[in-house]
Simulated assay, not measured.
Amino acid sequence: MKFRRHRHYEPPEINFIPLIDVLLVILIFLMVTTTYSRFSQIDIKLPVATTNKEENQTERPEPVFIAIAESGDLMVGNISVPKHNPQALANTLNQIIPEQNKGKTVVVINADANTSHQNVIKVMEVARDIGLTQLTFATQNK
């Protein structure tokens, strides 16, 4: 009887081929999905500017509030404007806003949720025609 005397013992080995295959797939995936940032080739030092808080406050005029009711009635600030009269709205806005502030003045439109879309468009057109370019709409949270 032979009891394993001549049998050669082989130590266990780790098979690296599946590991290499998985790493290669991960490497290809990362290369394809990576976005590269482009850096400027020129070193630029931007100029430094200081601002005077008082100057900034004088440059920005007060906003003008235009309220549009469901019926189409208009209020510019506290002044009532006849509805369906774009010329009266333009005259009122021209009286309230000085000519030099027309490009800087923000017009806030407070339109009723149930008002006609056409009423809002008319106000926007009048504002554009007299030179008011900064329009925004007021909303409320639920």
Rank of each mutant, 00 (worst) to 15 (best):
I28W: 08
V107P: 01
V25Q: 03
V126R: 02
E99H: 02
S71G: 13
N52A: 13
N52Q: 14
R128C: 13
V81Y: 08
H84C: 03
Q41P: 06
I20M: 09
T115Q: 07
K53I: 13
G131C: 02
Q57C: 11
G131D: 04
R7Y: 14
T51C: 08
I79Q: 10
N94T: 10
Q118F: 11
P11S: 08
V22K: 05
S40V: 03
A49R: 04
E125K: 08
A90P: 05
M31R: 01
F16S: 00
G72H: 05
P82M: 11
K53R: 02
Q118L: 13
G131L: 02
F65S: 03
K83I: 12
V25S: 03
D129A: 10
V22I: 10
F39D: 06
T115H: 05
K45S: 13
Q87P: 01
D21S: 01
V48R: 00
A88N: 05
V48C: 01
F16D: 00
I66W: 06
V22F: 12
V25A: 07
N119I: 05
N85I: 06
P61G: 04
H117T: 15
Q57E: 15
I14W: 12
P86V: 05
L46T: 04
P47C: 12
S37E: 05
N91W: 09
R7L: 15
A88Q: 09
A88T: 03
I109Y: 03
I28E: 12
F16A: 00
Q100D: 13
N141T: 06
S116V: 09
Y9D: 15
F137D: 07
Y9G: 04
N141F: 11
A113V: 11
A49Y: 14
T133L: 14
G131W: 03
S40R: 04
Q95M: 08
R5C: 12
S40I: 03
P47D: 15
T58E: 15
V81R: 02
R128K: 14
I68A: 05
A67D: 14
N119K: 01
A138V: 08
K102R: 13
I17F: 15
I121L: 15
T136I: 11
L46P: 02
F16Y: 02
A90F: 07
E55L: 06
N141G: 10
L19Q: 02
I68C: 06
S80N: 07
I20K: 00
N15W: 14
N56H: 10
F39R: 00
A138M: 13
S40L: 07
S40C: 05
P82H: 08
F16G: 00
N15H: 10
G103P: 09
P98V: 09
K104V: 10
N101W: 12
D21L: 03
E55C: 01
G131N: 01
Q134G: 03
T133H: 14
P11W: 10
N85Y: 10
V107F: 06
L19S: 01
N119M: 09
A113Q: 10
P86A: 05
K104N: 15
N114G: 08
M75A: 10
I20H: 01
K142Q: 04
L30M: 11
L30V: 09
N85H: 08
H84T: 04
E13D: 14
V81G: 05
N101C: 08
E55Q: 02
K53D: 15
D129Y: 07
K83T: 13
M124Q: 12
